[in-house]
Write a protein that binds this DNA or RNA. Structure first.
Ligand SMILES: [Zn+2]
Ligand SMILES: [Zn+2]
Ligand SMILES: [Zn+2]
Ligand SMILES: [Zn+2]
Lengths: 154, 154
DNA sequence: GGTTGAAATGATATGATATATCATTATTTA
DNA sequence: TAAATAATGATATATCATATCATTTCAACC
């Protein structure tokens, strides 16, 4: 499914955590792995279930939420507000620092594409914000629509 | 609180519904009124409670959800995905047709400003979308930050 | 190596948001 | 008025999220 090497991304995540003095414990890593292997965003409860399936070990949902919080704080996971689901960051293995993310969410197949926000867009956003005397706070854009492959289906 | 005349907006909502052959029943109208009078977005449960207070009449939350659905279909109410709350459209009394909305949400006082998306921004968005072969689906932008008045407070 | 304090995780309860389904009432249409 | 349709009520339950206290793990220190 994934167009990237899960193990490589996990190693990169580990490196990035070490750099920041954050502890990527084995359970947290497994949670991230579940999301990396998932083909679409998952809810905390779905993640708990996938965790059980993939490790034969039970995990309380409460713990999943806490681990997701950790992963989000370290920009390894994002939460999609529009459907209350979580997704692994698509740029863990990229060298550049994490930009403000933009998610293209397919309403047919639920797949999500995370792209960096286009410069022109950032500029337009800032301008629009400025006109309203509003102080922006790390935006995250979620755009719903239909992905390329779903468009092709009849 | 409101910087507009609630009754006038309600009349306009009624006109707009008549035009579209939609039935703005008295209960639906009351729900809209609750939101017009609210100083911030409200959850369906909060709306049910405000409805009770303002009309001395009980209303099942299930009904509130249905009425909110109706109001959203008619662009009289929007749902903010980032906090699962509902807000009256700020442009009910405007003559022009409803644009894709952009919400500036203050994380301090919770007040929301709905503005029409700036043209440059729409253009940048479309471009970004096009580059990704994605077919956009009536977008709605939710931007979090701090409003002007909260910025002034120390 | 044992002690101790902090961080992580588990266990349990509960709150908050949302939907499914069937019954009843109101409104429109013929 | 009768029949069809739309709106609302009632009830149950699913889904998402947080609060709180107990236990375990781990690093730091002596
Ligand atoms: Zn990311
Ligand atoms: Zn798709
Ligand atoms: Zn609006
Ligand atoms: Zn404010």
């Amino acid at each position: 499914m994934a167009t990237f090497d899960v193990d490589n991304v996990l190693q990169q995540a580990e490196r990035s955590c070490v750099e920041h003095g954050a502890r990527l414990t084995s359970k947290r890593k497994h949670i991230l792995e579940v999301l990396l292997k998932a083909e679409a965003p998952r809810s905390a409860y779905e993640i708990a279930e996938l965790y059980r399936q993939q490790t034969d070990e039970n995990i309380p949902v409460m713990s999943v939420y806490r681990m997701l919080d950790f992963l989000m704080q370290n920009s390894l996971v994002h939460k999609l507000a529009s459907n209350n689901k979580f997704i692994a960051c698509a740029h863990i293995a990229c060298s550049h620092s994490h930009q403000t993310p933009q998610f293209l969410i397919c309403d047919k197949c639920q797949q999500v594409r995370e792209i960096g926000v286009d410069k022109q867009l950032i500029h337009a956003l800032e301008e629009s914000i400025e006109n309203n005397h509003f102080q922006l706070n790390s935006p995250q854009l979620e755009l719903h629509g239909v992905c390329e492959s779903c468009q092709k289906q009849h």
